[in-house]
């Protein structure tokens, strides 16, 4: 249980990434400029708070019932961004966001993964419900984003195709 802090200086990789027109517009990719780990902090993450049972479920309904005690209704106000085809199923960028007010929780589920619940977040007042992260998808699956707002559950979903990589 060693804890090593990572101290980084200004990244040398702040530069424009040029892409050919075949892939659409050129993009600006900016590496994080300053990464400073200056001190060790108290560990506030509490293992006892982990909803282990919800994460052990193999269906969306069971996972959400245990996590939130209910089922979501589809809502266009839940926005999610996930690729149509994952370039690698081990690292699939998924972003969820919503314009809804009073959001207290956001969850991501991968329906055809061995365990359905992938991640869940508690959103305190003042925190934006938009969260970007990267998920592992075991195979082609529907990814569901769930937002809890005013005690009610809303969802959006998107199928993500996971193909076998061809290159060794």
């Amino acid at each position: 249980m060693t804890k090593t802090l990572s101290m980084m200086e200004r990244s040398p990789r702040r530069r424009e990434v040029l892409l050919g027109a075949a892939a659409g517009a050129a993009a600006l990719v900016v590496a994080p400029a300053v990464l400073t780990g200056t001190a060790q902090a108290a560990v506030t993450a509490d293992a006892a708070a982990y909803p282990a049972k919800a994460f052990a479920q193999t269906t969306e309904a069971a996972a959400l019932k245990i996590m939130y005690g209910g089922a979501p209704t589809h809502s266009a106000a839940v926005k999610m961004n996930a690729p149509d085809i994952a370039e690698n199923g081990a690292v699939v960028p998924v972003t969820v966001d919503t314009s809804m007010a009073n959001v207290t929780s956001v969850a991501l589920l991968a329906i055809d993964n061995p365990f359905t619940m992938a991640a869940a977040y508690k959103i305190p007042a003042g925190t934006n419900p938009g969260i970007s992260s990267r998920l592992k998808l075991a195979k082609t699956t529907k990814v569901v984003s769930v937002v809890q707002s005013g005690g009610k559950l809303y969802s959006a979903s998107k199928p993500v195709k996971v193909t076998l990589g061809g290159c060794g």
Binding site: A41, T44, A45, D46, A47, A49, Y50, P51, A52, F55, A90, V91, V92, A110, N113, F115, M117, A118, A119, A120, Y121, K122, I123, P124, G126, T127, N128, G130, I131, S132, S133, R134, L135, K136, L137
Partner: peptide, 30 residues
């Protein structure tokens, strides 16, 4: 299983993760 962010002592995000979160996890929020 649990990751928590605090700003000036106040919790600003608590995440519960399962094994479906990618290796070397990345997270972005505001």
């Amino acid at each position: 299983e649990v990751i928590e962010f605090t700003h000036a002592g106040k919790v600003v995000l608590t995440g519960f993760w399962g094994p479906a979160v990618s290796k070397n996890p990345f997270i972005k929020f505001s």
